[in-house]
């Protein structure tokens, strides 16, 4: 009996690791550029479809294509930043919300037009394997996704702490104006941040492909989950996204087991509402950051 619980907790944490990776991109973009990207989930969807398309085309294992997809989405992020996001930088709230909502609509329906509404699955040679230890079994693909996610988040943390660009990002996150006065190229860093955030979304998408089927509106679910994660952890905080991701993964798996799979979405929305009510700055958010939404 305890094996089931261990199984649940472990797979919840592993799932949470991927949620953390999805959310890290969102939280970084918010932290630095103060943009809440409602299309973030759709960028994950783009990563998933790209992996699917490349796998079908090249017949390679999806895992081999992960770097390609990540780099491609980084480029896509730069492009989006140049074409759209920089135009809504500092714009009123309504423009930021609905420009990214509009972007989401465009991406979703572009996918619908190209790939249709069917669920698409991709098989990986590697992903077929199942890990068994301590009486529990885990799909290898979930394990790989978790390990890669953790590694990427760790690298990002180090990058933000030590590199010049990372320091510039943190400076802008704290005070845009002061940073620009310190001759930091704020616009360039904004673009780079959006590129990196999109790359994280794409990477997460590629890792999700062997686990879940992809369909055009999957992003809508993912963006909500990642907002829940980010708000739970505290907007703009990488550590927060990690903890929040793991927590939501756990909540989803446990509530799926105890209340039933249809209700598990309900569980994290309720958590979300509770967080908004009792701790809008999140567990790791800067104080007063809830008013940054204004």
């Amino acid at each position: 009996m305890t094996a089931i619980y261990i199984q649940l907790v472990v797979s919840g944490l592993l799932l949470g690791g991927i949620y953390a990776l999805v959310s890290v991109g969102l939280t970084m973009i918010f932290g630095v550029s103060r943009i809440k990207n409602f299309a973030h989930g759709d960028l994950v969807m783009v990563g998933m479809y790209l992996t699917y398309a490349l796998t079908t085309w090249t017949q390679l294992d999806p895992y081999l294509l992960v770097p390609v997809v990540t780099v491609a989405l980084f480029g896509f992020g730069l492009l989006l930043s140049f074409a759209l996001i920089r135009r809504i930088q500092g714009a009123p709230q309504v423009a930021q919300i609905f420009a990214t909502v509009g972007l989401g609509l465009v991406l979703q329906n572009a996918a619908l037009m190209i790939f249709g509404a069917d669920f698409r699955t991709t098989n990986s040679e590697i992903a077929g394997n199942v890990l068994r230890f301590w009486g529990i079994s885990l799909p290898l693909s979930l394990f790989i996704a978790f390990v890669v996610s953790m590694a990427v988040i760790a690298c990002l943390t180090v990058f933000l702490r030590t590199s010049m660009v990372g320091k510039a990002m943190r400076a802008i996150a704290q005070d845009r104006r002061a940073a620009s006065l310190m001759s930091i190229d704020v616009k360039f860093i904004d673009m780079l941040t959006f590129g990196l955030g999109t790359a994280c979304a794409g990477l997460a998408g590629a890792l999700l492909v062997p686990l879940y089927p992809v369909y055009p509106t999957i992003g809508a679910n993912l963006v909500l989950i990642s907002f829940v994660v980010v708000i739970l952890g505290g907007l703009g905080s990488i550590e927060g996204a990690l903890i929040g991701g793991l927590a939501i993964g756990l909540i989803e798996t446990l509530s799926g087991f105890f209340i039933g799979s249809e209700m598990r979405q309900m569980a994290y929305f309720l958590v979300f509402i509770a967080v908004l009510l009792f701790r809008p700055a999140g567990l790791f958010g800067q104080r007063g950051s809830e008013t940054l939404g204004s």
Binding site: F272, L276, P280, E290, G293, S294
Partner: peptide, 9 residues
């Protein structure tokens, strides 16, 4: 809450 937090809620 303000702005986009309200939208999310």
């Amino acid at each position: 809450l303000r702005g986009s937090f309200f939208a999310l809620a």
